[in-house]
Amino acid sequence: MDEQGMSNLERRYRWLLRVLPKWYRQDREEEMVGIFLADRTDDLDLEHSWPGWGETGAILGLAVRTHLAAGAALTSVPARVMWRGEVVRVLGMIGLLLGVFYAGAAITNLSVAYGNPEWAQPISWWRLLELAPIVAFAALLNGRRTPAKIAAFAPVVLTVATLAQTGGHVVLWVLFQLPGIVTFLCLCLGFHREAPTPPARRLLWWGGGALLLGVLGGFATGTGLLAIALITVVVRVVAFVRGDFVLGRAVSLFALLQLAPLAFLLVGGEVLVIVLPLAVLLVLCAVAPVRKPSARPRVS
């Protein structure tokens, strides 16, 4: 549309709508702009006003749902958009399983500390937040997305509070927590209100396995990153053999995220013989080709 006869308010609405994907704007932009401007006829309003906060929030929420479409509530969604949404949701679920793994390790640590008060450090009730990913996992499988996201964020609050008390190095923390931070964002963005609920029956096995491995790993301090890296490599190979594009792409991205925390283990040099081969394998997982899908993803 020619901008010469366009008011400033309409121009601002159109700029805001650019957060939506092009395929969606082609069908809906004129209709949406007409609705926004329907009751705004005052000349001063048209020249000096801006889109309201409520409208802006609604459009940003719509942008998330359209860029990461689940397909059920939208029509004419390009296949690449649906695949992108599925990959983001799987990556978010991988991050939640990572949290369950660390929650299992926390159960072991808390149990040891509680059972040996003579040598263990005093237990702070705040440390119970480390178990929140288990709650988040159960809530998400039950379709309760908002409580799941809040619970998944709880360990981050605990870590930030610990850093504030101890004066820890923020950059170091961010790099170590990079896989968890990115996958948490994927969890929040991917599981929007129109996204399907994850299949509980299949994922319960994954969740139980992550919890059990975390409990066992809690007895061997420092092996968590190594175990996660090794499991990532195994799952990536399984995804390639099965021709699972969504899982393969998500695990490739997750492998790339893990390189940051592994880099610090390499700098330490204490487990160089183990960490270096794992780092190489993670790089191969990240750059290895993924079989392209031959059909659109199935929507639950």
Rank of each mutant, 00 (worst) to 15 (best):
E3G: 00
M6V: 11
M6D: 06
R14H: 09
L17T: 00
V19M: 09
V19C: 12
L20Y: 06
D27H: 13
F36Q: 06
R40S: 08
R40C: 08
T41R: 14
D42F: 03
L46D: 00
E47A: 15
G57I: 07
I59E: 04
V64P: 07
V64C: 07
T66F: 04
L68H: 09
L68N: 09
M82L: 15
M82P: 07
V100R: 02
I107M: 14
A113H: 09
A120D: 08
P133L: 04
V135T: 11
A136G: 08
F137K: 00
A148D: 03
A152I: 07
F153E: 03
V170G: 01
P179H: 04
P179N: 06
G180V: 05
F184D: 07
C188Y: 06
L189K: 04
P199K: 13
G209A: 14
L213R: 07
G214A: 03
G214F: 03
G218Q: 00
L230F: 15
V238D: 10
A239W: 00
D244W: 05
L247N: 03
L253G: 15
L257R: 05
L257G: 01
A260C: 08
P261V: 09
A263Q: 06
V267G: 00
V275T: 15
V275F: 04
V280P: 00
L284H: 08
V287A: 10
A288C: 01
A295D: 14
P297E: 06
